[in-house]
Amino acid sequence: MKNRWLYWILAIFLLLAVCLPAYKWNRSNITRLRNAGKTEMAPVIMVPGSSATQNRFDSLIAELGQEAPQHHSVLKVVVKTNGKVTTSGVINRNDNQPFIVISFQNNKDGKTNIDKQAVWLNTAVKQLISIYHFNHFSALGHSNGGLILALFFERYLKQTPALRVDRFMTIATPYNETSTSTVYKTSMFKELYNYREGLPESLVMYSIAGTENYTSDGTVPYNSVNYAKYIFQSEIRSFTEITVTGANTAHSDLPQNKQIVSLIGQYILRENFPKLNDQSQRRH
């Protein structure tokens, strides 16, 4: 009888001696898997709209620099028409979320140019990966820059299969060009629509529209921004539309609009911004 008790105690002890460390290992293994493969560095790639230069986001970055608790270094990349890349600025050694502004020597409007710019963006991103070895990033596009990014995701992202897009934000991007119609589909939209299945399924996307009046931000029609839903909705993990109104909502002011700056901080940088969304207290 005594022996039997001893056996039971021994069995239970052995069971615990296996199960507890096994459970602990299992947990740590799952955590490891969750972080597996993702590099520490995850830049925010910004693409300005047509006719804009590499300095287009300077005021935005300055605003972000004032608000953001972390310092972000800035690298500016210009892609020449022959695919060559020139850079200015540096990425600090300890900066895991640098801003990389990619602009193009040929920064003209029009579908044929945007198609070319998406290819150039692809070459630039590939070069950046080979230099900085990141495998995930977030993207921010203003105006036609959003179209270039979207095209890049749809058509060229699969060329670098290890690369993942964490979050994607477009500001006043005319997915249906400058058409105000709710029915007419432009060729730009058709291309984006046809290739939409190439979008990464895990993509989290925010499309921001600015409105000065009820129909547009002065340049891009609200209806055109709204066409994003036909491309992204139910193709990606989540798609959010945000409409910003009030002061500084003209098309070219949007990137440095206070509301949008805080939205970028909240959704793209994921940092704790002071007095988030609290616009009423900071009237100019």
């Binding site: 296996v18 199960c19 096994a22 459970y23 299992n26 947990r27 799952i30």
Partner: peptide, 10 residues
């Protein structure tokens, strides 16, 4: 006996 338990994350 533990494969199911560990495989489902406990």
């Amino acid at each position: 006996l533990l494969i199911g338990w560990l495989g489902t994350g406990g």
